[in-house]
Write a protein that binds this DNA or RNA. Structure first.
Length: 574
DNA sequence: GCCGTTTTCGGCCCGACTGTTTTCAGTCG
């Protein structure tokens, strides 16, 4: 049984939690947390690095952690973790993640009251025992009880468009407050992550502007978590936490940079600053007590000798090195996109008609839209058979003769059967302009079979594009067990495009995978998989995810004009 | 536990808010 990277990360995070509860060296704890993240974001299975003996080349992984990773891969467990678990009661780590508790207080609860589970904590609070502990009080006890009722210890992240809805509305509200200058959302939202845990909003305003008061009295606010002169946190009724920070104009760039993160990126850049005798905080870049930068992000990064780095890249995944060397990619933009290569109509499971989809695409200024309805095997989608596709092709031709700016491409999203064969006959495939293939069943095949299945489909001469390559659904289903590197290489070899699917719960390939695919030489297609006219707007999410994967315009097929796109598809079929 | 253009030892990013305290620890981001 192969050990997933996520499993290694999980075990390391457990070690970090337990070390924290023991009051261990904070930097040792951070080393485990950092290693967890590094392993989690590796584009290839960590097992491969174990075989190549190249683990210690990873940043933040030295001899010791490399050995522990090797142990996990070989045995599935980690002895050091077992030893820690004997010293710290299980469950205390869960307790530690309740808002308001940290390692110290969780530990105190256990040492004095024997509390090590959430129900025990609940009972102890209700019995008024917690308030008597040193460092606790009546208010802390009440807050804990409240936290347990509302949220427990689980972190919940929302999909990016959901965060966008609430965040953009709140921004409009804040901008309407008199005296407020700039207002922007920073944090992982600005970095365009696929999910958002909380929103960080920054504003500038004149002295005496009651922006914090107005913020906490926003109608959607359910609960005020903190309220100070420059900072406040609230929880909205939808459950989303929002932090507001008030900045002076002179430090706006520094604040924006600081609160955009990521944490790992910030730490790495501050380390560079430190070597230059500088200090970076949210108010600026400082040499001693003198502020040498802060008004703009360009100034802040410039002060440590770096060019501005797009927020999407700030994950400490090589962007700082690239910035130093002047090799940052020029990322693809929404405006570069000339058409959409996956869409559905009422002929299968779409909610809008062929004509409606065409007009909506024209409205967006597209040159082309591929109509790619499902094939029969996807029963829930009411897929078309060969006769159905023939009829649709005729209607597309008729529509094309009436459309002036847009060309509809005759396509299909062909189901890849479990044996790797395609769910549509070769003659029909040949007649189509663009053939997408994708997996909609048998998600649980073992890696060998799943890989064989997908590779067989990619080798079919008519296939142009692999749609939602991993099949993941954010928060609901992990990706297929498939050897992605082989998929990328085979796609390159056979001229098959790899999709970055813009559906907010797919975003598949994701950022890390897209980056890995590009490294293998792949060409991507960013498409929306729209099942209604409004979903053509999902292009925004797809482009963002591609940008997070370091994608440039020339590596995206649908930034090409129609003629060049068709040439590319045609070349791939040989 | 990691790491090296000050270092193989001694550093490791930084500040705000809360609630408990009478000057600060703990938590959070």
């Amino acid at each position: 049984m192969p050990v997933e990277n996520a499993e290694v990360a999980r075990l390391f995070r457990e070690v970090a939690d337990l070390l924290e509860l023991q009051g261990a060296n904070p930097y040792r704890i951070r080393a485990y947390q950092g290693a967890a993240r590094t392993v989690e974001e590796l584009p290839q299975p960590v097992e491969e690095l174990v075989k190549q003996q190249s683990l210690a080349e990873l940043p933040g992984i030295g001899e010791d952690l490399a050995g522990k990773i090797q142990e996990i891969v070989n045995t599935g467990t980690l002895r050091a973790l077992g030893e820690l678990e004997r010293k710290v009661p299980k469950g205390l780590a869960t307790l530690m993640h309740v808002r308001g508790l940290g390692p110290k207080r969780a530990r105190a609860l256990f040492d004095s009251l024997g509390v090590h589970t959430l129900p025990q904590l609940d009972r102890a609070c209700r019995a008024g025992k917690v308030r008597r502990l040193p460092g606790f009080g009546v208010k802390t006890e009440a807050n804990l009880l409240h936290e347990l009722e509302v949220h427990g210890a689980e972190e919940h992240r929302v999909l990016r468009p959901v965060a966008a809805q609430y965040g953009e509305a709140l921004l409009r509200y804040l901008r309407s407050v008199e005296g407020v200058g700039r207002a922007e959302i920073a944090g992982s939202y600005r970095r365009c992550r696929d999910t958002v845990g909380d929103l960080d909003i920054l504003v500038t305003c004149g002295r005496g502007t009651p922006v914090i008061r107005r913020f906490v009295s926003y109608p959607e606010v359910e609960e005020v978590l903190a309220e100070g002169p420059t900072r406040s946190s609230v929880r909205l009724r939808c459950g989303l936490q929002v932090d507001l920070r008030v900045l002076a104009e002179a430090s706006y760039g520094a604040g924006l940079y600081y609160f955009t993160g990521s944490k790992a990126h910030n730490i790495a850049v501050r380390r560079i600053a430190q070597k230059k005798g500088l200090r970076i905080n949210e108010y600026g870049v400082w040499r001693g007590r003198r502020r040498i930068a802060g008004r703009t992000e360009e100034q802040v990064l410039g002060s440590v000798g770096l060019p501005w780095i797009p927020p999407e890249l700030r994950e400490n995944r090589g962007e700082i090195e690239a910035a130093r060397q002047g090799t940052l990619p020029s990322l693809v933009e929404r405006a570069d996109i000339r058409g959409d290569l996956q869409s559905h109509t009422t002929d299968s499971d779409g909610r809008d008609t062929l004509a409606a989809m065409a007009h909506a695409a024209e409205e967006l200024g597209y040159e082309y839209l591929a109509i790619t309805d499902h094939t029969p095997a996807v029963r829930v989608a009411g897929g078309l058979d060969r006769a159905g596709f023939r009829r649709q092709m005729k209607r597309i031709e008729q529509l094309n003769s009436r459309l002036s700016k847009l060309t509809l491409l005759k396509g299909a999203e062909v189901d890849i059967r479990p044996d790797g064969s395609l769910d549509l006959d070769d003659a029909t495939l040949d007649a189509l302009d663009v053939v997408l293939v994708s997996v909609h069943s048998a998600f649980d095949l073992a890696e060998r079979e799943q890989t064989r299945r997908v590779l067989r489909a990619l080798r079919h001469p008519s296939v142009d594009l692999l749609a939602h390559p991993t099949g993941r659904l954010i928060g609901r289903r992990g990706g297929l067990r498939v050897d992605l590197e082989q998929v990328y290489r085979t796609a390159v070899e056979h001229g098959v495009l790899l999709e970055v699917n813009g559906q907010p719960d797919r975003l598949d390939l994701d950022d890390v995978a897209a980056h890995a695919a590009l490294a293998c030489g792949a060409t991507l297609a960013i498409s929306t998989d729209a099942h209604a006219t409004a979903e053509l707007g999902f292009m925004r999410w797809g482009v963002e995810q591609a940008r997070r994967g370091w994608t440039t315009k020339d590596r995206v097929a649908n930034t090409r004009p129609l003629e060049r796109l068709l040439a590319l598809l045609h070349a791939g079929r040989r």
